[in-house]
Simulated scan of single mutants.
Amino acid sequence: MRKVAKFLAAVAAVVVAVGVQQSAKAAFVGAPLGLRGALQYIKFDQPTLAPMAFTIFCLKYKDECKPRPQHIVFRGGRLKLTAERMAQLQEVNHQVNSAIRPEPNLEGLRGEKWLLHPTSGDCNDYAVTKRHDLIAKGFPARSVLLGEVVVPWGEHHLVVVVRTSSGDLVLDNLTGHILPWSKKSYRWVRIQTPKNPTYWASLGDRDV
């Protein structure tokens, strides 16, 4: 009987353990993007110069670059990512990626013109348009930042980083998927700072 009792106890322990694991998995199913174990945040390091094209962009679109008052309560300095906000992120990412026809800049720095809602353009136009549209939908400017990266084939590239309590997420014209910044195979160069969009910073080590 003791052996049987021990056997039944062991079976019960396994059942409980499986149930706990299934409950945990079920809890993550509803999490935005299924960000299991990927809650990594960008760490702002040293101040650095903003891209020259961004400075010109600010002269043309002054409202895009002015500091804005904070009206939304943040958790740990980051926006709480609700299902509604996640849907808005996906909507803006898809709409802008579809609306702008890809047109590479073949003139280098001389040919960089960051424009809002152009009919055709490069990564810079996609990024500034997405940031503009997200802020227009109520996202606080301090949580929607432009970031410069280097892609695996060596080109400099501009993306949008949305700082949330579920991790820092990247909106990119090269893909329709919104991914945590730590999942992108990019070398990060610099990013806007949350307090003032005209100030940029380099990136430190990943902060989990």
Rank of each mutant, 00 (worst) to 15 (best):
E112C: 05
P67Y: 05
L33N: 15
G138R: 00
P140L: 03
V14G: 09
Q46K: 15
R110V: 12
P69I: 03
L158P: 11
N105Y: 08
E155F: 00
L59I: 05
T129D: 14
L158V: 08
L115K: 03
A136I: 02
S165G: 11
G111W: 11
S143V: 14
D133T: 13
H117G: 07
R163Q: 14
G77F: 03
K60A: 13
R75C: 02
V162G: 13
R190W: 01
K113M: 06
N124E: 15
V18N: 12
P67V: 07
G37D: 15
Q40K: 12
E112Y: 07
K66Q: 08
W114P: 05
H117I: 10
A38S: 13
S166M: 11
L109I: 09
L35K: 15
Y199T: 04
M86C: 07
E84N: 10
P180Q: 07
V29W: 13
P152A: 00
L33I: 05
K184P: 07
G34M: 13
A53T: 10
P140Q: 02
D207E: 10
A24T: 13
T55I: 02
C123T: 06
G30E: 12
R75W: 03
T198N: 02
P194Y: 11
Y186S: 02
K184G: 07
G30H: 14
N105Q: 09
